[in-house]
Computed example of a mutant assay.
Amino acid sequence: MDDKAQLEMAEGVLLGHAMVHRLAEGLGIRAFFIKGPGSVLQGLREPRISADVDVFVPPSGLGPLLQALQDRGWRERPVDPDTRTFPRHSVTVDHAMWPCCIDIHFRFPGMEKPALDCFEAMWVNTNSLDLAGQKVRVPSKALGILILALHSLRSPESPSCRQELEFLSGLIRQRSAATSLLDVAEETGSLAALRPFLADTLPKGTIQEWPEPSKEWRNRVAAREPGSARLLAILQAPLGEKPLLVWRAVFPRREVLLSKDIYADMTFLGRVAQHRARWARFLQALPRVVSDIRRR
């Protein structure tokens, strides 16, 4: 395909929603789309061009949908296989002929209930929306706010995330909106993670006792750097697992290098150069890593 025939990003994202919707519907998989253009159309986000398609499916739907996309030329992006350090919540696929990628979510960080229970609670809080000539499922206003807030709360120091949280805060000033949000948060076990967002917005005494966030969520919020996440995982791991985690931190698998660049040079000299660059990034980030560990 020549450059003139390639899809623009905005076109690819919209057509990607339509394609994934058709695939999921044909397989009998319940699927709804989060963030992205749907949130903008609902007034939950300020106008922006998305760079990917975010779709949510029940855990049992992940495999079939992923296989259907792979049959059509989409390939799974390499990721760090260390799920202790980086707990998996989605699978990302891309295609050489498409400008955007697709993120298939089967759980969402900050939602502490079991993944299937969360999906069922979310599914009843979805609506239909016309998008790219298709009627697709998207979150209700309350669920959409919950998902966007949890997404931004993972990086609260980011200016764009702070701006989004301020925008969302303005949407729940009305009591009815706040009540709906609290209902969905309780059903998905998200109150603990949402506390920094809700504490200053809700009337005092609305929540009598806030639940404690999970270790996974506390680690995710504290670790602003990849090196912080690895050190936290090593410090918190049982004694017998620490040596392997240290070994993998010093000598990562090829998937770790490819996760940064799928076209990375994997020859011996290429890997040596990538290891050098990796250590240079770690040393440069070391003051922030130390700060993250102390804060956690």
Rank of each mutant, 00 (worst) to 15 (best):
K260D: 13
A277Y: 01
V272C: 09
A264K: 00
A285M: 00
V256L: 00
K260I: 09
D261S: 09
R281N: 12
T267Y: 10
M266G: 14
V272D: 04
D261Y: 13
D261W: 13
V256F: 08
R271A: 02
L258N: 00
R288Q: 11
T267M: 03
L257P: 03
W279T: 07
L286H: 05
L269Y: 09
M266L: 12
P287N: 12
G270F: 04
A277V: 04
K260P: 03
P287Q: 10
A285H: 02
F282S: 02
Q274F: 06
L257Y: 08
Y263W: 15
Q284H: 02
W279H: 08
Q284R: 12
L269I: 07
L258M: 05
L286D: 12
R276Y: 06
G270Y: 07
A277D: 06
F282A: 00
L269R: 13
G270P: 10
R288K: 14
F282R: 08
A285Y: 02
T267H: 10
L269E: 11
A264L: 04
R281Q: 11
R278C: 02
R276H: 08
L283T: 15
T267V: 04
V256Q: 02
Q274W: 02
Y263R: 15
R271C: 03
P287V: 00
R271N: 04
R276C: 13
Y263C: 13
Y263M: 14
F268A: 09
V272A: 12
R278I: 05
L286C: 05
P287F: 01
D261C: 08
L257F: 12
A277M: 03
H275W: 01
R281F: 05
L283G: 15
L269W: 14
A285P: 01
W279P: 08
D265E: 05
A280V: 12
R281L: 06
F268C: 14
R271V: 10
F282P: 01
R288G: 11
W279Y: 10
A264M: 06
R288I: 14
K260Y: 11
H275L: 07
L257H: 10
P287G: 05
R278P: 00
S259C: 08
Q284V: 08
L257G: 00
L257S: 07
A277H: 09
L258H: 05
A280L: 13
R281H: 12
A277R: 00
Q274Y: 10
R276A: 07
Q274P: 06
R278E: 10
A264F: 06
S259Q: 06
F268V: 13
S259I: 07
Q274N: 14
R288F: 12
S259W: 04
S259M: 03
A280W: 09
A264E: 08
